[in-house]
Amino acid sequence: MSTAKKLLLEGVSDAVGFIAGALAGYGLGQAAGWNIFDAGYGATSLLGIVCVGLGGGLGLQLARRWRAARAQHAQAAERP
């Protein structure tokens, strides 16, 4: 795989993982009653923001682990 293609895959998978994780964190926060758009910076607003941040970080890590597993699988397939 060319370097440009690898970099594109890395960027797109990181972005998709982060956005999907952040949306999942937002949904969990909403389900718990923690609205990130509440007026001011109350406890529920901050808890909602934390959920979005943690979800985004977890999604990014899952995307990176997916890429690593994919690369390891490709290397194993190349071996005779």
Rank of each mutant, 00 (worst) to 15 (best):
Y41R: 09
S45A: 13
R65Y: 05
G55H: 01
L58G: 07
L54R: 05
C51Y: 10
G40T: 06
R65V: 10
S45W: 06
L58F: 11
D38I: 02
G59K: 06
Q61C: 10
G48N: 06
G33I: 05
F37H: 08
A69C: 08
L60P: 00
R67F: 03
W66K: 07
A68M: 05
Q61Y: 11
G48S: 10
G29N: 05
W34R: 02
D38S: 11
A43Q: 13
G57Y: 10
G33E: 07
G40S: 08
A39F: 10
R67Y: 03
I36H: 11
G53A: 15
G29H: 04
L28T: 07
R65F: 07
L46I: 15
L60K: 04
A39I: 09
R64N: 10
L46N: 14
R64H: 13
R64E: 11
G59S: 06
A69E: 11
W66L: 12
W66M: 10
T44M: 11
G48V: 05
L28M: 15
G55D: 03
C51K: 01
G42W: 06
L62H: 00
G42M: 04
A43F: 12
Y41S: 14
L47I: 07
W66T: 10
S45H: 13
C51G: 09
G33R: 05
V50L: 15
A69T: 06
G29Q: 03
A32V: 03
G53F: 14
S45D: 05
G40I: 02
V52N: 01
G42Y: 06
L46K: 13
A68L: 09
G55L: 01
G42V: 05
T44R: 15
A31D: 07
A68F: 02
A32W: 09
G56H: 01
G33A: 03
A32M: 11
G53N: 13
G57H: 08
C51L: 12
G42A: 07
D38L: 13
A68H: 05
G40A: 07
A43I: 13
Y41H: 12
W66Y: 14
I49F: 14
Y41Q: 12
L62Y: 08
L28V: 14
V50C: 08
A68W: 04
G48P: 04
D38A: 12
F37Q: 10
